[in-house]
Simulated assay, not measured.
Amino acid sequence: MREMKNTQSHDEDGVIKPGAKLSGNDYVLVTLRDSGDPSGRILLVRKGFRCIHGCTICVECAESWELDHHVHYQQTGGGRRLREALNAQHPAADNAHPAKVDSTEPGTIEADSYRQ
């Protein structure tokens, strides 16, 4: 697996560091299916060739995250743009399902008011 640059916001594996201050445009929230754990932040990578597929999320690997995680696209600006990119990639598919699931979950929050 290719390493990313270790910065103030994320480590060399692309994992967002605890306490890192990021814009909602830079991450998407995910919750592990079948778990009561709180949502985690996954770094969005805008260029698929830079994604290390496993700790980061891009258009190419977003749908694979949905196998084990609820991807909360509607809770951040970056997540909404990622959902739009997936819809553009697969216009005939029924892509409303993940957003519908997110919007009905209890405790959902507005993207602009979320800070971790």
Results as ranks from 00 to 15, higher is better:
residue 49 F to E: 15
residue 80 R to N: 14
residue 105 E to A: 12
residue 32 L to A: 12
residue 31 T to G: 10
residue 115 R to N: 05
residue 8 Q to E: 15
residue 48 G to F: 04
residue 61 C to E: 03
residue 27 Y to G: 08
residue 102 D to Q: 02
residue 64 S to C: 02
residue 110 E to S: 06
residue 35 S to T: 14
residue 41 R to D: 03
residue 28 V to L: 07
residue 52 I to A: 12
residue 32 L to G: 00
residue 2 R to H: 12
residue 46 R to E: 15
residue 42 I to P: 03
residue 18 P to Y: 11
residue 29 L to N: 11
residue 57 I to T: 00
residue 65 W to Q: 02
residue 63 E to P: 00
residue 30 V to P: 04
residue 59 V to E: 11
residue 112 D to V: 06
residue 97 H to P: 00
residue 43 L to R: 15
residue 23 S to I: 02
residue 101 V to Q: 04
residue 33 R to F: 05
residue 9 S to Y: 12
residue 33 R to L: 13
residue 71 V to G: 01
residue 91 P to E: 03
residue 109 I to L: 07
residue 27 Y to C: 08
residue 58 C to L: 10
residue 88 A to G: 11
residue 29 L to G: 06
residue 15 V to I: 14
residue 104 T to W: 02
residue 84 E to D: 15
residue 110 E to T: 00
residue 94 D to I: 07
residue 26 D to C: 15
residue 19 G to D: 07
residue 2 R to N: 07
residue 37 D to A: 14
residue 58 C to V: 08
residue 35 S to W: 09
residue 59 V to L: 12
residue 26 D to A: 15
residue 86 L to I: 14
residue 102 D to I: 01
residue 66 E to W: 01
residue 79 G to V: 06
residue 17 K to C: 07
residue 65 W to H: 04
residue 2 R to M: 09
residue 93 A to S: 11
residue 60 E to W: 01
residue 18 P to C: 09
residue 82 L to K: 04
residue 23 S to L: 13
residue 39 S to L: 05
residue 57 I to E: 01
residue 99 A to L: 06
residue 24 G to N: 14
residue 4 M to I: 00
residue 30 V to H: 06
residue 110 E to F: 01
residue 79 G to E: 04
residue 44 L to Q: 10
residue 90 H to C: 04
residue 109 I to F: 03
residue 115 R to A: 07
residue 64 S to Y: 10
residue 75 Q to E: 15
residue 58 C to S: 13
residue 48 G to Y: 02
residue 95 N to V: 00
residue 64 S to D: 10
residue 32 L to F: 12
residue 23 S to K: 13
residue 20 A to E: 06
residue 2 R to E: 11
residue 85 A to D: 14
residue 61 C to P: 01
residue 12 E to H: 05
residue 62 A to C: 10
residue 39 S to G: 11
residue 37 D to R: 15
residue 103 S to Q: 08
residue 15 V to G: 04
residue 3 E to K: 10
residue 32 L to N: 06
residue 60 E to I: 08
residue 97 H to R: 13
residue 15 V to H: 05
residue 66 E to T: 11
residue 7 T to N: 01
residue 97 H to M: 12
residue 20 A to M: 08
residue 23 S to A: 09
residue 29 L to T: 04
residue 70 H to F: 12
residue 78 G to V: 00
